[in-house]
């Protein structure tokens, strides 16, 4: 079944220059298996591309059931010069959580 990242994980966004750093942490093992398998750099890039963002790098921290995404060019030129209402992109964590993923199995352990 398909699942929204929001339902299985939580996220936090931070910035450095024009790069957004968004972590995604699964609530449980089933959620971890799904985000680890399905929340790919390609999917994240497609979701953030309208911001002019990319490339995207993904780091895995299995012991924390967490992924760390580093999304370049996501902040409208960077915190200090962006015209955006949220130049830090702190709200982008919520955008990450809007991604829909296929193949979630609640019973997975």
């Amino acid at each position: 079944m398909s699942v929204r990242v929001y339902d299985i994980a939580h996220a936090r966004a931070g910035d450095k220059g024009n790069t957004s750093n968004i972590s995604v942490t699964a609530y449980d093992e089933a959620g971890w298996q799904t985000i680890h398998r399905e929340l790919t750099t390609e999917r994240v890039l497609a979701h953030f591309r309208h911001l002019g963002a990319g490339p995207v790098r993904r780091y895995e921290l299995p012991q924390l059931r967490a992924l760390n995404f580093v999304i370049e060019n996501a902040l409208g030129g960077g915190v200090t010069r962006s015209l955006a209402i949220d130049p830090h992109g702190k709200s982008l964590s919520a955008w990450m959580l809007m991604i829909d993923l296929p193949g979630h199995n609640e019973g997975a352990a």
Binding site: H10, A11, R12, G14, D15, K16, T19, N21, S23, T25, R57, Y59, L61, L64, A66, N68, V70
Partner: peptide, 11 residues
């Protein structure tokens, strides 16, 4: 966990 990865980039 959220704060560990906050603005960390490459862990």
């Amino acid at each position: 966990t959220e704060q560990l990865l906050y603005e960390m980039h490459d862990p």
